[in-house]
Design a protein around this nucleic acid. Sequence first.
DNA 1: CTTAACGAGCGGTGATGGCC
DNA 2: GGCCATCACCGCTCGTTAAG
Length: 224
Amino acid sequence: MIPGKSVVDVIRQYKELEVDVCNIEAGLIPVPGYSTATSPFTLDWVNTPSYDGFKVSGKRSSSVRPHEHERKKGVPWTEEEHKLFLLGLKKYGKGDWRNISRNFVITRTPTQVASHAQKYFIRQLSGGKDKRRASIHDITTVNLTETTTTSSEDTNRSTSPHALSVATTLSPAHERVFMTPYGANSFEVKMQGQNLHKSALYESSYLGPQTQNMVFQMQQSSQH
DNA sequence: CTTAACGAGCGGTGATGGCC
DNA sequence: GGCCATCACCGCTCGTTAAG
């Protein structure tokens, strides 16, 4: 299903692509960026017990490296991602970046998580040095935090369609509690009173089975 | 997975010049 | 002289990448 395209359009596009691919494989169309006469690369079909497919051979020229292998720009970690990282670190411990990536910081690859952890631990080791620039790595725990914010962003998040709102008898100050899925294995709790807002991140294992199921269903619906 | 090198981007700080 | 804006330099932070 492609928005704005009919079945006939899609079939026509498929057939055109099929012809293109046939022409490319037949060598009728030069691949952009490669000159068969000057390129140091060759494409060989390899068929061994361990590998079956094309393999590129030849030397990589350092002079062309910057053009064909641009360094990716870094995407700064958000506070939310860092908090999820801390939760994952708590659950899986140092070194299990794969599971932390898979179950907590699902927006980052294990390599990115490992890199972030490296900087985080370096920051912890250098603690105590004054005159440091503020960093996201200064956040070392994910605990119940109390604020008096009444920002619209706060309100919007709490009343998102995937937030579970429950009445509370915790204290007269907390009139409502909002639970919002937060990553794959955690959830955010916000307690709101007239002038008091509290928020905290918890692992899903903190919940009873019924509530865990409700949060799981909210996660499913938020993904759709 | 760990470690270290690398590079981009940002913020702090001092120098400089214009204005009052 | 005091204040403010602008600029350049430098150090720091942090994401990417390659080697082990």
